[in-house]
Simulated assay, not measured.
Amino acid sequence: MFNPMTWDAPYLVVVAALFVIVMLRANGTYWLGRGMTAGAEHTRLAKLLRSKHYANASRWLNRWGAPAISLSFLTIGIQTVINLAAGVTRMPLRRYLPAVTVGGLLWAFLYGTVGFIGWAAVVKLWQFSPPLLVGVLLLAAGGIAWSLLRRETPAEVHAESLPRG
């Protein structure tokens, strides 16, 4: 059901369906961000607003503006917090909507092709050699862990986000 390569529909219909899905998700996240700013410090959402991922997303959004929205759809794990940050910072819709539309189109085309080709490769690798797949996954997990461990500490993130004067 969730694998567009198995849908019995023309490619452009699959891409259009994926585009609708990503637009609903991204815009829902944006509006959640806009709605949560009032009183968020007194809820469980305050933890998210103080997280390193949110600080990184906010810094990226402030640096790059609307193109950060579009480019976030080419990443893994930052897309949601970028859209949330756009809502929290109340990015004007005249800038947000074109950016999220471009990003959504990029995501839909990529997810409808390369994303599931990658999944098909994982399935083929499992069929060929389960230990090899486990090794590749462990190597990927090690790379992610290494990347996360060498990132900035929360104090560095906080210090970087303070205004300079």
Rank of each mutant, 00 (worst) to 15 (best):
M1H: 09
F2M: 05
M5P: 03
T6Q: 14
D8S: 13
P10T: 08
Y11E: 12
L12C: 01
L12E: 10
A16C: 08
I21Q: 14
I21K: 10
M23D: 09
R25W: 09
A26C: 09
A26F: 00
N27A: 05
G28F: 02
Y30N: 05
L32I: 07
G33I: 00
R34Y: 09
G35Q: 09
A38N: 14
G39C: 11
G39T: 12
L45A: 12
L45G: 02
A46I: 03
A46S: 11
K47F: 04
A57N: 08
S58P: 00
R63H: 07
R63Y: 02
W64A: 05
W64I: 05
G65E: 09
P67Y: 04
L74N: 06
T75Q: 08
T80S: 12
I82C: 03
A85G: 13
A85Y: 01
T89H: 06
R90S: 15
R90M: 13
M91N: 05
P92A: 10
R94K: 07
P98T: 08
A99H: 03
T101M: 06
W107D: 10
T113I: 12
T113P: 08
F116P: 10
A121H: 11
F128P: 06
P131F: 07
L132P: 09
G135V: 07
L138Q: 03
A140D: 08
L149T: 13
L149F: 13
H158P: 02
S161Q: 15
L162D: 14
